[in-house]
């Protein structure tokens, strides 16, 4: 690691101020950032820990929306959304392992926007909203490609808002060594629409599979996507799976998610 200063502000205002310093960077659970620092792939002048900030905590249903504090750990999301939002709870309960889930946060995962991260698929499928210290950003504007988001320098994710679906599910085809998704598909069914968010597959990061969304809105059944075809063009290809394989998995995982939605 390169040298950095460390600060743990007790309020959101203090954190925003601390992050105004040049090259200061927010630190959530550190489950991604600390390995990155160890590999010397980041060189912040200062780390601003968000762990002590009460405003970033709390998971609550507000009418037909679920609000998750940006500092909520994956473990808290898994436990506290069970019975409210089955698909999100399932997703959180399968991120990493229990020790990772006790530290890693939803804000950290969405800010990082790893092309194989799980939460982006849920945010995209629900067309949820990222709330920051300055504004609200709709899912489709928020994600801007691999490890890239609409967040400005020093902007903090304070909460995430998910419109609550009638039914939902997440299917993750695990890369067996890392347990990150090789392809993950989140399906959310609403009264008038269906959302399908796909992670791990595209070279541009998470995307909504719009053809499937339309087909499923008419008939929410696995067969509804039988005649659709996912192109391998623009899909990621690596030693774990070719572009064609990932494209194939998108459809398979979508069908499984629809079949399992509850």
């Amino acid at each position: 690691m390169y040298a950095f200063e460390f600060e743990r502000p007790g309020s959101l205002d203090a954190a925003v101020k601390a992050l105004q310093e040049e090259d200061a960077q927010a630190l959530g659970g550190g489950q991604t950032l600390i390995p990155t620092l160890k590999q010397r792939l980041a060189m912040p002048s200062k780390l601003v820990s968000l762990k002590g900030i009460a405003e970033l905590q709390g998971i609550a249903q507000e009418g037909d929306v679920l609000k998750v504090g940006g500092g909520s750990t994956h473990g808290a999301v898994a436990r506290e959304t069970k019975g409210i939002f089955a698909g999100l709870s399932l997703m959180a309960s399968k991120i990493g392992d229990p020790a990772v889930r006790n530290r890693g946060t939803m804000g950290g995962s969405l800010a990082n926007n790893d092309p194989a991260a799980c939460y982006p698929a849920a945010l995209m499928a629900t067309r949820g909203t990222v709330v920051t210290n300055t504004r609200e950003i709709a899912a489709e504007e928020y994600f801007q490609g691999l490890f890239t988001t609409a967040l400005e320098e020093g902007e903090i994710i304070t909460s995430i808002r998910f419109p609550l679906p009638e039914k939902s599910n997440y299917q993750k085809f695990e890369q067996p060594a890392s347990r990150f998704p090789l392809v993950g598909v989140f399906v959310a069914k609403y009264g008038d629409r269906v959302g399908v968010g796909v992670t791990g597959a595209s070279e541009d990061g998470v995307f909504a599979w719009k053809e499937a969304e339309e087909a499923l809105a008419g008939n929410f059944a696995p067969e509804a996507v039988d005649d659709l075809w996912v192109s391998a063009e623009g899909m990621m290809s690596d030693l774990h799976g070719t572009a064609e394989y990932r494209a194939h998995l998108v459809k398979v995982m979508t069908k499984r998610a629809v079949a399992a939605a509850e």
């Binding site: 600390i34 390995p35 006790n102 530290r103």
Partner: peptide, 9 residues
């Protein structure tokens, strides 16, 4: 609560 001591400062 269990955590990985290698992934925390």
């Amino acid at each position: 609560r269990r955590i990985n001591a290698c992934l925390t400062l």
